[in-house]
Design a binder for these strands. Structure first.
Lengths: 183, 183
DNA sequence: ACCTGAACACCGTTCAAGT
DNA sequence: ACCTGAACACCGTTCAAGT
């Protein structure tokens, strides 16, 4: 990769991050190219689709979420670790502007949407946490990690329609009540 | 209202309905005006915002949903009537193209989004069904009708990310499990 | 090998002119 | 009172020309 290409790539990423933060996932691509000081063609060369740019812009945030999953599974009992991690996914979905649609397609059915890098990372973490909670008998056996991620995304959507971040815990707890094995 | 105005209004509504069905809520307004055989200014005169047009295009569908709520509350025990109605809301949200964002803003917090006609109708029906289920002791007392509508919208979102309509029942049942009073 | 930016297509929105 | 459609602004996307 040529030096100027590498530099443009980096400038596009920072420009994209701030534009998405300001205007959400629909931010103008032309504006992003301008902020980065490159021609619009250069943006398309590096990131052929809006999704590719979104994915790249939030890769670090997604990795941080995966890292948090590992931390939680080390420091808490399995079922609490899972609960807490799903809550953090909810909060990130709501409060990080532009992340929502990316998370949505990351947890969508793999047959209908091609699996994204973000999807792989998030599913891997979910899988580990779910398996640990299940082996403790804290989770219905008929739920896949993908089910849980989708339901959590739904809860984030619901909380966003309500009071925002302050409803995430309450709504998630209601859901998780239904996910426990029947008593 | 002048005769041609009334005619244009009607033509715009049918054109909008088919365009939204084909291309979702983002359908081109210019294309809708063309299909209706009117100038674009006429569309804006009748429906100043995209939301106003969406609202008008789906008014009948929303009224039908309210009507179903009344039928269900007459023919089923309160808690089943509520469950069944919420399921029908889910199914409509997923399968009627373009309806989703309208339903979303209909159940959003009234402080952040001005209450729509669709919101009023849907909330009124939810309120009656929730009150009947609650008086039977079948529902947590800390849940408002708005909470339930938001959670249901979240469930529809989750099901859409998964297998579509075939997951609505399963996901909704999981949620409703958590909404029952603690045993 | 990579970049630039003009060019094209498309869309939303407004408004002067028309009936 | 209502309609028309040209005009403007804005955006996504491509690609010939340039280094």
């Amino acid at each position: 990769m040529r030096a100027d290409a590498r530099r443009n790539h980096a400038r596009l990423l920072t420009a994209a991050a701030s534009a998405f933060a300001e205007h959400g996932e629909g931010a103008s691509l032309d504006d992003i190219a301008k902020r980065a000081g490159v021609g619009s063609g250069t943006l398309y060369r590096h990131f052929p689709t809006r999704r590719a740019l979104l994915e790249a812009a939030y890769a670090a945030r997604i990795d941080a979420l995966a890292e948090r999953g590992d931390e939680l599974s080390r420091s808490l009992p399995p079922s609490e670790a899972l609960t807490e991690w799903l809550h953090e996914v909810c909060v990130a979905t709501i409060q990080v502007r532009g992340l929502k649609s990316l998370m949505g397609s990351a947890v969508a059915d793999a047959d209908s949407t091609p699996l994204t890098a973000c999807g792989t990372v998030v599913r891997t973490t979910a899988k580990r946490l779910v398996e640990q909670a299940r082996s403790e008998g804290a989770l219905r056996p008929d739920l896949t990690p993908a089910d849980l991620l989708r339901l959590t995304h739904g809860i984030a959507t619901a909380a966003e329609l309500g009071g925002g971040e302050k409803d995430t815990r309450r709504y998630l707890d209601l859901l998780l009540e239904g996910l426990r094995p029947l008593c």
